[in-house]
Every structure is written in structure tokens, then in C-alpha cells.
């Protein structure tokens, strides 16, 4: 079976549409509510969904995701339960590509080999590990390479990656995640001053779609770079919206439909 992320990216390329990717913390408002939100986003046309596995020390995240992560841990969310959620969701026929966004210690603690096997078995399509730069990816890549149906390791680049970009993109699959600014998630309106040059330079060398994330709230935010990027990722803003609307599936779906429509109309 082809990887769901890659399949979706090909589909979008054929339709000449941009990808809309959301991030939400797993386990909120509870496991059932989380499943309902995943289904609602699939129906609303979200292309890829990032599920954040809560960790005690989310050092790449700003206050919104930190707080969500903390809350989810308090509710008892852990990797084992999220794997169960994945198996149930897939068994119910949900086919939206899903990425685990998580910190490396959670993987190490679970055991790398076992983690990769469970990802493959439960239908996880990709991994984003923000504290694992390319220099430290060896062990995880080895394990991913050995497992049939293993998730893709999504690569991140930053505005200061500069000469590192070709090496990071070497062998990268799915899409490349371009962090829009310096620092952490959720700093709205704070794109790097050389954002256009930076995105163009990544686009110029990337063989896979280029997504932009960090600090995006509406489709209008990415209007200036619409001819460069292949899609946008919304995290902190989406989480805030979920909280403000009591995790309503309708509010989530409405936001996603609007963003996707507006982005493709840019």
C-alpha cells in the first residue's frame, strides 16, 4: 500500500491544489472527542493531520501547545493509548493521512523498534520529531528502513538552515516542513524577515512538496508566498480555536473548510 501522505500529495499535485495540514494534541478533549475531531477533519477535507503526542518538556512548542500537552498528560494520555486510538480509527475506515508529532524521548522510552512496528501496524503515516536533527536520526532511520509500511520521517528546515538544506532533503519523503520563523510554535505574525528568499531557496532544491508552518492563522497569512509553497500547517491557532469552541466538531470543520477554500482561491 502506498504511503497515505505521498498518495495525498500526488492527488493534490494533479488537482493543482494546496495541502491544508492541521495539528492537534492527542487525547483532547478526551479520547472519544479526539476521534470525533479526526473524523470531522477528514470530512472537512483536511489533507494531513498531525497528532501531537503529549510530552512533559515540549521544548519546541510555545505556550498554547505546551498547555494543551500538559492538560492531556493530566488526563492520562500516553503513547499506548494513542496507538489504540489509531487502531480503532483506522478500523472505522478513517483514511486521512496522520502524522505523529512527538519528542524523541517518548520514542526512546518505548523502544525504537517496537515503536516503529506499532506505528506501521496502527496506520501512522508520518513522524515529526522536532528535537531530532538529521545528525541524530540514524537509529530511528535504521528502524524505519527495516519495517514494511513504516511511517515517513518528515524533515524540518528553518530560516537559518542555509547550507544544511540539501543534506536534510537528501532522501526526504512526504513533504518538507518549513518552519516560518525562529523559535517555537504559535508566534503569530512573526515570520522570519527573509521568509520569501528562504522559502524560494528550499522550493528550488526540493523534489517533494514544501509546506509552511508556525504562526499561521488564516489563509491570508500565506497569500504572499502562495506561488512558492505547496501548503500550510496550522497548529497553535487551531488548538486555541478548539478550546474556545469547546472542541466542537462543527467549529473545527467550518474553520478547516474555510481555510482550504480560501487558500486555494488565493
Amino acid at each position: 500500500m502506498p504511503n497515505r501522505i505521498e498518495a495525498r500529495m500526488q492527488e493534490l499535485a494533479q488537482k493543482k491544489e494546496k495541502a491544508f495540514i492541521t495539528y492537534m494534541t492527542a487525547g483532547l478533549p478526551d479520547m472519544e472527542g479526539c476521534k470525533a475531531l479526526i473524523r470531522a477533519q477528514e470530512e472537512a477535507g483536511v489533507d494531513v493531520l498531525e497528532l501531537g503526542i503529549p510530552f512533559s518538556d515540549p521544548v519546541a512548542d510555545g505556550p498554547v501547545i505546551q498547555a494543551a500537552s500538559y492538560k492531556s498528560i493530566q488526563l492520562g494520555t500516553n503513547l499506548r493509548k494513542v496507538f489504540a486510538l489509531m487502531r480503532e480509527t483506522r478500523a472505522e475506515g478513517v483514511e486521512i493521512p496522520i502524522i505523529f508529532m512527538m519528542y524523541y524521548n517518548t520514542i526512546l522510552h518505548h523502544g525504537i523498534g517496537e515503536f516503529v512496528r506499532e506505528c506501521a501496524a496502527s496506520g501512522v503515516d508520518g513522524l515529526i520529531v522536532p528535537d531530532l536533527p538529521m545528525e541524530e536520526q540514524g537509529s530511528l532511520r535504521d528502524a524505519l528502513g527495516k519495517e514494511e509500511g513504516a511511517p515517513l520521517l518528515i524533515q524540518l528546515v528553518s530560516p537559518v538552515s542555509a547550507d544544511r538544506v540539501p543534506a536534510i532533503l537528501n532522501g526526504a519523503r512526504g513533504f518538507v516542513y518549513c518552519v516560518s520563523g525562529m523559535g517555537v510554535t504559535g508566534q503569530s505574525g512573526n515570520f522570519h524577515r527573509e521568509i520569501m528568499t528562504y522559502l524560494s531557496s528550499v522550493k528550488a532544491v526540493s523534489k517533494i512538496p514544501v509546506m509552511m508552518g508556525f504562526g499561521i492563522q488564516t489563509a491570508a497569512d500565506v497569500a504572499p508566498m502562495k506561488d512558492i509553497i505547496d501548503g500550510a500547517i496550522v497548529g497553535s491557532h487551531f488548538i486555541r480555536l478548539l478550546e474556545e469552541n469547546g472542541y466542537s466538531t462543527e467549529a473545527a470543520a467550518e474553520y478547516c473548510r474555510t481555510f482550504k477554500r480560501e487558500m486555494n482561491a488565493l
Binding site: V59, Y104, P133, E135, E136, V160, R164, V179
Partner: peptide
């Protein structure tokens, strides 16, 4: 050279690697 046996390394976000 960034390691002491299996310990050490640089488990930070990409944006800090050049720094």
C-alpha cells in the same frame, strides 16, 4: 566527537544546529 560513549549529542531543533 559530540558523544561520550552513547551519551551527549545534539537533541535540539533544526533552527539551533547552525548556532
Amino acid at each position: 566527537h559530540r558523544y561520550y560513549g552513547e551519551f551527549g549529542g545534539q537533541y535540539v531543533s533544526e533552527s539551533l544546529m547552525n548556532t
